[in-house]
Amino acid sequence: MQFQLDVNGERHALDLDTRTSLLDALRDHLGLTGSKKGCDHGQCGACTVMVNGRRINSCLTLACMHEGDEITTIEGLGRPDDLSPLQRAFVEHDGYQCGYCTPGQICSATAMIEEIKAGWPSNVTDDLEAQVEASIEEISERMSGNLCRCSCYPGIVDAIRQVAREEARA
């Protein structure tokens, strides 16, 4: 099937089997290997990308369903010489060990901070109608779709918390 994908501001023409997941299209056909395949069943979060600003599991959606959508992967968030605030904070707080889950963690957290800014409550929010703070408890709950088997969660939470606070002040 022929279709186009807009990824990190660039348009790509593709001709792929309808079965191709968005993750496989990014990795195997567009060479964007930052997004990782962990479980391939939406359980681990390593494949997290943003579609129209929202975080999703790219393994659980078909590439051909995303014509016209704006897709952002880890490669679109920053570069080695120009890190995004979260990428910098993950380095600073040692938010990884093997690094396999890190692109998914950072894409997820980037969109998650926007969800907090938009006032979305979570399962641990006491008052559904109050403004939410990026507390450790809130961040842990909201990031539960991203597993880190090296268990670097304390560093991950610290990194996200720092950026969420900076952005709340900005």
């Binding site: 599991n57 929010t125 990031m143």
Partner: peptide
């Protein structure tokens, strides 16, 4: 709201 927020993950709820 409470039931929805108790289900799945942020990524899955977005889809």
């Amino acid at each position: 709201s409470r039931a929805l927020l108790a289900g799945a993950s942020g990524q899955l709820r977005n889809k």
